[in-house]
């Protein structure tokens, strides 16, 4: 078991012929992901690495069954691509693109909710169910099957901690990137609920950062969980009102602080690591 995606997930790539899309499609194929079709308007009828390419999502669905789509479309055109996938009824849409205007994000996230679709991102590394399916951009070498579910607002920090976990002998069931933007589709709570129900997942690592209140909201659910949660929050030293890379990583008017998040998580019963390197030891104790 794993959550959201597994070895049977059939994946479509929107923007398959672009620089990012083509590079990461090859990487996903190398990981074993079942990429069944690609979309690139104007390039319908061609092939990319033996994968048929179509002009529209609707055209793909005439020939293939698709469970998930991944978006590698530049920010200015991303909204159109996401809405196209959702309108066609794709159940899971992973939006890798960064720098999408937030008004566009609010629009397609609202539409995804109405269509009851799972929208991961935007500005996410994607999702990996170790050894089964990778949708997105994480380097292939950092994830191995195991009992730890990971959910995170940051890509490289997830790889860092996944790498440390593997070195300590703990693989991952599924790792989900929520995305670094101000608003995102799937949130910590959504993913925590799925991990709580997943038999393969024995413990969860939550990687948050300053800004917003997703960690505080997650804490409410963590209180109810039977599975243990280890959390790490980045940005303790960040000055207020400065955007630290991610659009969502900013302390505004005293809200979204490191202290507030750590307090909420600790009170909910999560173990909070002060440094990423402390995570594996905490997991070891919890799973012993």
């Amino acid at each position: 078991m794993a959550i959201i995606v597994d070895q049977n997930t059939r994946v479509m790539v929107q923007g398959i012929t672009g620089k990012q899309g083509s590079f990461h499609t090859r990487q996903m194929l190398a990981y074993g992901t079942k990429v069944v079709a690609g979309v690139a308007p104007g390039k319908g009828g061609s092939k990319f690495e033996d994968i048929p390419v179509y002009d529209t999502v609707r055209a793909v669905l005439q020939e293939h069954q698709v469970d998930a789509s991944v978006i590698f479309i530049p920010a200015a055109f991303a909204k159109d691509a996401v809405l196209e996938a959702l309108e066609a009824g794709i159940g899971t849409v992973v939006v890798i693109t960064e720098h999408i205007p937030v008004q566009d994000e609010m629009e397609f996230i609202a539409y995804a909710q109405r269509k009851k679709a799972v929208l991961i991102g935007p500005n996410t590394f994607g999702i990996v169910s170790s050894g089964k399916c990778k949708i997105g951009i994480p380097p292939n070498q950092f994830f191995m099957p195991g009992p730890v579910g990971m959910v995170s607002r940051s890509g490289t920090l997830t790889y860092e901690i996944a790498g440390n976990l593997i070195a300590a002998g703990f693989g991952q069931s599924t790792a989900v990137g929520m995305g670094g933007d101000r608003i995102v589709g799937l949130t910590f709570i959504d993913v925590l609920k799925l991990f709580e129900a997943d038999p393969e997942t024995k413990a969860v690592v939550l990687i948050g950062e300053i800004g917003g209140n997703a960690e505080e909201e997650a804490s409410v659910y963590i209180k109810e969980m039977t599975k243990p949660v280890v959390a790490y929050i980045a940005g303790k030293s960040a000055p207020p009102e400065k955007r630290m890379g991610h659009a969502g990583a900013i302390i505004r008017r005293g809200k979204g602080t490191y202290e507030g998040k750590v307090k909420a998580l600790a009170e909910a019963g999560a173990l909070v690591a002060e440094m990423p390197s402390e995570v594996p030891e905490m997991i070891r104790k919890l799973l012993a």
Partner: peptide
Amino acid sequence: ANGAGITMSTLDIIQRYGGAPADFMD
């Protein structure tokens, strides 16, 4: 550093060891 999260984390660790970061560069 590479990646917003790990860059933030790098600054945090420097501060934890008593140092003062001059910048955030991802």
